[in-house]
Amino acid sequence: MAERLYRAAAADALRIVPLDDFTVIFHRPSGLTHLVTAPAPEILALLSEDVLTRNALLACLGAQFDLGDASAEALDARLGELVATGLVETA
């Protein structure tokens, strides 16, 4: 089975406002607001530039954001949440 690919919702679908440790994101298509913390904003930033597999995403998080200690399981959980909200889509 091919590995699943992820991408962020279209840039014009999101309004992203960093507050402090938290970032508040308005998702235009649903009209809902999400309050997220690391590594969600970093995931969104990466997935807005590239369509990535989970493993590629994990590697990028480590390289670019010093979030390499996140486990694959933890990343799966975050991705699951982001997909459920529509902030991330499976390609």
Binding site: L19, D20, F22, V24, T33, L35
Partner: peptide, 11 residues
């Protein structure tokens, strides 16, 4: 209060 706490309490 931090901004995120204010945001949550106001919503």
């Amino acid at each position: 209060l931090g901004p995120s706490e204010i945001f949550v309490r106001l919503t």
